[in-house]
Design a binder for these strands. Structure first.
Lengths: 209, 209
DNA sequence: GTGAAATGATAGTCAAGACTATTGTTTTGG
DNA sequence: CCAAAACAATAGTCTTGACTATCATTTCAC
């Protein structure tokens, strides 16, 4: 098992200009992630591109993993807010399916909108730091889904529903990642099919009284 | 976009001892992958642990990515052979589900049996080289699944079936990866649930005449 | 306005890691 | 058994990249 090197921020921005520097570092890192990929990304590279110097970066981030972690968390936060903001009109299979499809499509959209969103999605598997960010986010999403389902049917076993929700979340994300990986496939069709599968699962869970 | 650095082997083993060296390099790389993770793995480290020297490694591999690629391909090959060896007794929903479950369970088993199998699975997302290996393997699996389905019902549209198969394969692998990522969840339950979802999908595809 | 805190730049250090020119040693075909 | 090929080691080179000690400048509190 690999050690976990990362920490939190080093210094909190207090003046306007540092706020800018902080954001610039993140934006530049995202840009570079898109251009050169995860493996070639380095702090020196980020600094050079941003017109900054290493100490400026290291004032705000204890090490390079912290930069990546923050980037990942930004995206995960955006995606989860989206997910948790949506509720099905009813619990009919069709409404559930529509809602899920909406979430999937919207998630793809916000990911595209964010610089290097697609790359960040893929890099989430590329480092222990980011893997942790990803799994926490998915757990949170599964928790939310579990409570949604159990609000509808309280007799269901908490742990079992959670396990299935967790699987569902993972499969949803797998479909989303496919959109970014496999450009030959029809995006709308892919998401629709995934939404269909997931909706059926949710309905089935609800019925297992 | 990142450049792709890797190439094929440099020298084919011709004597017994070189065969050993070759295998030793791969085995050591797998071991180290398990111990230190993907990011900290280096060629020098592999050599040291294997009791070899860098030139010995570079006789057989043009660069470090080639080592990883070979490791990934070994695992993918094993998994795909397994997958393509299985055929459902019948095309009833239950038989399909059983077959899928068998494949999932067996895949987890062979992955566990291989040194660093779990790590390799996760590292498949960690580098462009390995991402390519992974996607090729999944495409091949989806092709196989497509022909299996179309052998049963030739009226189905090839591309549509392929897209859905591809999604199915991805979801199956997502479930398998979860087994290695999320140890808190019940493995058998996870795989059973995934098999159920996938079987339903296959049945639905077959019925869309 | 001025001193202190905050911010950033100069100019590096240092370690690690990918990869090799060369030389020695083992194996094998004849 | 010997020459040539195959194999592996010696001993590096050279680049890159994470990270810092120190000094300069900007901003803010008062």
């Amino acid at each position: 098992m690999s050690a976990s090197p990362p920490l939190k921020k080093r210094s909190e921005p207090r003046q306007g200009r540092s706020e800018k520097t902080y954001d610039l570092i993140l934006a530049t890192a995202a840009e570079l992630l898109e251009e050169v990929g995860f493996e070639r990304l380095s702090t020196n590279m980020i600094c050079k591109r941003a017109g900054l110097t290493p100490p400026a970066l290291y004032r705000y981030f204890p090490n390079k993993y912290a930069v990546l972690k923050e980037l990942g968390e930004q995206l995960m936060r955006t995606q989860n807010e989206l997910f948790e903001g949506m509720e099905p009109r009813s619990f009919s299979k069709d409404d559930i399916e529509h809602t899920i499809l909406d979430v999937l499509v919207a998630t793809v959209a916000v990911t595209r909108a964010q610089t290097a969103g697609a790359w960040i999605m893929r890099s989430l598997h590329a480092s222990p730091v980011l893997a942790e960010v990803r799994i926490n986010s998915h757990r949170q999403a599964a928790q939310f889904l579990t409570s949604l389902i159990r609000a509808r049917n309280e007799t269901l076993d908490q742990d079992q529903v959670y396990a299935k929700s967790r699987l569902g979340v993972e499969l949803g994300y797998a479909a989303i990642e496919m959109v970014f990986d496999e450009t030959e496939l029809d995006e709308a069709e892919l998401l629709a099919e995934a939404a269909n599968m997931l909706a059926r699962t949710v309905v089935r869970i609800l019925q297992e009284a």
